[in-house]
Every structure is written in C-alpha cells, then in structure tokens.
Design a protein around this nucleic acid. Structure first.
Lengths: 334, 334
DNA sequence: TTGTAAGCGTTATCAG
DNA sequence: CTGATAACGCTTACAA
C-alpha cells in the first residue's frame, strides 16, 4: 500500500495524503480522518527510504561504541535510546571492537544511510579529522566519554584526568605510598591516557616517586584484572593499595587478592573506576569513581539534536562530574 | 556527488557506474577502474535509501531487546553484530524496556525502514501473531531465548524448563528440601514461566511439597535480589538453598546472606542462572546455569540470513544447551 | 560490454 | 485547502 493508492481510493491527490499524514493541521479534519481511516484499513506503512531520498536526509542517527559488553557503555546506550525515541528518530548502532577498520566501515555505512548525526562513544585517539570531515558533509557529531582540547567539536565528557587524580589522591590521603595501577591500553585511548596522567600527577604532587613496576597495562576484563593483580602481588615489594581503572579490572583484582590469602582493605586497599552498580555488591563493597554514563548519553543526544535542528553553530562542550564513591575497600595504611 | 554526476564525468551512463560499483565483473576492468577512481576523487558516497527504494527492500535488519543493560543481552547483541557485519548489513536496534507499546513503536519503525528481518530477543508472551503478521509482509523473523511451541516460527533458544529443572535437581541431589526461588516477573515472560515450572517439576519428581512462601517474584536487578533474599531469610523456616534465576539476582542475594551473617555455602547454598563471567569472580564463585547467549546471537543471525536469502521456507528451530556450571556456592545439606 | 529509460514512494513547489 | 507535477538517486529490463 502506498500513498498514491490511498489517494486513489480516497479520491484525492497524493499530496493531500502526504499532508494528512505529516501535517494533519493542513488538511480539513473531515477529509483527514477519512484518509487516516483508509490508511489504517489497508495497513499502510510509511516508506521511510522514499522520504529520506526526497528530503535528502534521514531521521536516523548512528552511534558508535567500542563494545556494548560492560555495563557502562550499555547504560549510555540505553540513555541515548530513550532520548532518541522521544524525538521519534531511529538508531543505528555499531560496535567497533576497538578496531579502526571496523570504525571506518561503520562510519561509511552511516554516511550511506545519510544519518542526521553520529555519536562517538569511547572514542579513540586522533580521530578529530574524521569528525571534521563528517561535519563538512553536514553530519553532526558528538563525542562522549572524553573532553577534547579542540574547540570545534561537540563533546559531553567528564574530566578523566581529575577523576584519576582524585582517586589516587584519596589513596595517598590514607597514607599509601606504594600505589599500584591496573589500567587498560592507555597508549591507544585518550581517556585512559588522561587517567594515567592523573595518577602520575597525584603522586608527583605529594612527592611520591613514580615506579613503573607498579603499573600494569592490560586489556580490560575480569580475567585480565586478576592476572594483573597477581603480577603486582609477586613484586618484591608489592603495593599497599591498588587503583584499578575499571570496576571489572578491580573485581578481577579483588578475587586475586583474596585467593592469595590477603584481606581487602586490611592488607591491600583497592579502588575501582566506573561506578557500576555491581561494585556496591562486592565483598567488601568497592570504593570507586562514578562515571556519569547515563547522563552523558542523555546529554550527548540532546546536544546532537540541537545541532541538527539549529544547523551549524559553535560547538557545545560539557564536562560532567565523576565523583568518588567511598565504600569499604580502602583503609588507612598502618 | 551522485552516480549520474560520476557518469557524466567519466563519459559513461549511470547504469555503467552502478554496475562498476555493484557488479565489478560486469564492467571492462579498465573502464571500471576509471569510474572507481573518479568516485574516490569526488568522495562519492552511495545512497542507500535510493537503492532501498528502488529495490523495495533494505539491507538493514532490526533487533529488539528488552534492555541491553545486563551482560547477557549485551553479549547476544555483540554476537549478532559481528555476524551482521560479516554480511555487510546494517543493524537497527531497539530497547523495548519490557513495554508492549514501545515494542509496537519499534516494530513499526522497522517496517517503515523496510528491514529485511527482525530478531526478537527476550521475547514476551503471546506475540506469535505479531510475528506472523510481519512474516506475511515478507519480513523474516527469528526469536531467541525461547523455544516456542509453534512450528511455523524461527527460533534459536534453549530449554528453559530443563535448565531450571537441572539446577533444582542439583540442589535436591545435595539433599536440600527447602529450596527458595528468586525469579523475575514470570507471569509476563514465557521463558521465566518455563523456568518456574522446571523448578516445580523437579520438586514434584522428588516428592517435595511446593511451598509458595519460598518463591519470591521480583524485578530483575541486584537490589531486588538482595531484598528478595532478605525476605526469604526472615521466613519462620528459611530455605537451606536458594535458586536465583539470574546471576544478578544471585549476586544481590549473596550480599544479603553475608550481611545477615550467614555463610555460603555453609549455611545456605546458592545457585544462579545465566553464567555471566562475573559469577566466577564472586566469593564464593557462583554455581550457575550457563545460557548460550553468544551462540544464540550468532545462530539466530545465521538463521535470519538464510531465511532472507532462501525466501520462505519452513521454520528453522534450534534448541541449544544450557549447562550447569558447578562452582563453590552449593554444598550438601548436613 | 554499454546505454536507454522507466520507475520505486515520497515531498515540495506552484498554481488554482 | 487541494491538486498536478517534478524531482530525489538508484536499479534493472531491454535494447543496441
């Protein structure tokens, strides 16, 4: 069933049918209802591709994630979804699996579908140019989880440096001096690099010598956290506190510590990062840094919608707060 | 940039450009390369909507989830993604938030985009007719996480009844008789209902009287698991073992048990459901039922692709295994 | 191997 | 308030 068939049945023109469907107020109520009724009867389904073609844009927006496994990104995705559905738009997602090639493929797919905008989540290093290119093609972009230096790109992030600084600082305030760091592949990811630097800076500001042996960089994941912790435990002089830069890593580390027969926080203090709900249910409940995953998703979507509706304006940039949530996995060094 | 502009520049017809892009072998190599080169130079981007319109179908497929929060669905989604990307198709996702209205909206959106197929994940009760309708409109469907009675609908599920039966049975084999059940809203969800029945049947088969006081139905979630367990703990005669029908529920329950000063499995045996990686990192590591989340995603996508490519055939139905993973959270009743 | 030409179902402009 | 009509960018018989 198409508009023109409906038009024929109703004895009106396609234009009128289109209007009845899209701008109800532009059609005489009686006629409008008759058209709508016929559409319903014949199970008419709007053909989005045809409209997109004519209008030269779609109402779909694309979202790029490294992966949606892991509660953080998943929460952000849900928030995006909700907002997008409010705006009656469609969502195309892609998981890049942290691969540049995959990302390129997905961006191309988005372009082919003429998405109105793209949200980059958990964005890699050095893709500003990709984004500028997209913007030049009238595809609006927002990046989340990062706060960029660039002043021309929309972002909704949080201060990764400060968040890591605060966490490390907290450990230091508890008199810890040998503080281990378990972190993802920070050389490849801007936000991880910033966290790494936050850790270093906190050490420096308190006159603690940075010790490369205390940092282990690994893939994210429970098992990896466990292995990393084991490595730390086997050091000649193991740390008295560990900052695991994701709750998953921390949970893995926790199991490793327990398995080795140590207590948390009695023997080793442990702090996570992300603030997933689960952290509160660990034994002991995990002190962590709460990343505003949901808020970022919401805000990023709003920013995107505004860009789309207002056309090119100057970039909107938001840096949200990431708060330290103190629970029971850290204690003062005796 | 469009095909016809490229055609003009290359001094050929649109048809040739289209062929050069879509069926490279149908164009003389030299000419093809010239066209491709021009396309690249001018940054040509294929217009998927136009093609969809002409072809009367799109290469997008839709996936419906209740929510992607929670590692299980997220894993299935990732598996689907991977497969879909292999087939160079696009993925449109929707979270129904367990709402019929949202689901209807999303299905409509999928139809408007003329998706080639839809994967229903974590499907609610009584939607067979919705699916049959879709099938009548040439939209192929697969449902996952369920094994349907209907013989005309594709599904890739696992035996929810048997999985729950086995878990309960295991507890019984450990001499438990008062076995609590913490379960989601099973009255609304087919697969939960089946698990509930599996639990009941196992009891019955061993001559254990079903006691409604021992089952608490709740929303899924950590907090809910905790509260449900508290409720069970306050029973005049609390259970000696608890079957929590999701690992999240189980982890919540675990924290509740510990908080009340009891030991797992010493005082209370606990078994989860889902088999998320995390369960292995609990203290104690959680015995659970492993749901083949990833395999279901993969297979469901393959089934869908086959349906799409082969046109209407008879339904493909797969029932995968859900295995009991025995770890340390259950012990024999003393 | 390549070209011609007719649409696909909408939207939007312009006229009535 | 309504109608006629020309695109939008692509695919695909069919013809050359």
């Amino acid at each position: 069933m198409t508009m023109s068939r409906i038009a024929k049945i109703a004895g009106v023109s396609v234009a009128t049918v289109s209007r009845a469907l899209n701008y109800p107020e532009k059609v005489r109520p009686e006629l409008r209802n008759r058209i709508l009724e016929i559409a319903r009867q014949y199970n008419y389904v709007y053909h989005a591709a045809a409209a997109d073609l004519k209008r030269q844009k779609s109402n779909a927006i694309g979202v790029l994630f490294p992966t949606t496994i892991g509660p953080l990104f998943a929460e952000t995705l849900m928030a995006i979804q909700e907002k997008i559905q409010e705006h009656h738009m469609a969502l195309i997602v892609g998981n890049t699996m942290y691969s540049k090639a995959e990302e390129a493929r997905l961006v191309k797919q988005f372009q082919e579908r003429r998405v109105a905008g793209i949200i980059f989540t958990g964005y890699g290093l050095g893709q500003e140019n990709l984004i500028r290119n997209l913007m030049r093609q009238n595809i609006f972009c927002v990046v989340t989880y990062e706060n960029l230096e660039d002043t021309d790109i929309n972002y909704v992030g949080f201060d990764n440096f400060k968040a890591a600084y605060d966490a490390t600082n907290y450990l230091i305030s508890l008199r810890h001096k040998r503080i281990g760091l378990i972190i993802g592949p920070y050389r490849k990811m801007g936000r991880l690099l910033k966290r790494f630097k936050g850790y270093q800076q906190a050490l420096k500001d308190h006159g603690i010598q940075f010790d490369a042996a205390l940092v282990v960089s690994t893939e994210p994941g429970l098992l990896e956290g466990k292995q990393a912790m084991r490595q730390l435990l086997h050091l000649p002089e193991p740390p008295s506190a560990v900052f695991a830069v994701s709750d998953h890593l921390a949970i893995g580390a926790l199991s490793s510590i327990k398995q080795a027969g140590f207590q948390v926080p009695g023997d080793i203090s442990l702090i996570g990062f992300d603030g997933v709900e689960l952290a509160a249910y660990c034994d002991p409940p995990l002190t962590t840094v709460r990343v505003p995953a949901r808020d970022m998703g919401r805000l990023a979507t709003e920013v995107l919608m505004k860009s789309i509706n207002n056309g090119v304006k100057r970039a909107m940039q938001y840096c949200l707060d990431a708060d330290l949530i103190i629970r029971k996995s850290c204690s003062e060094l005796k």
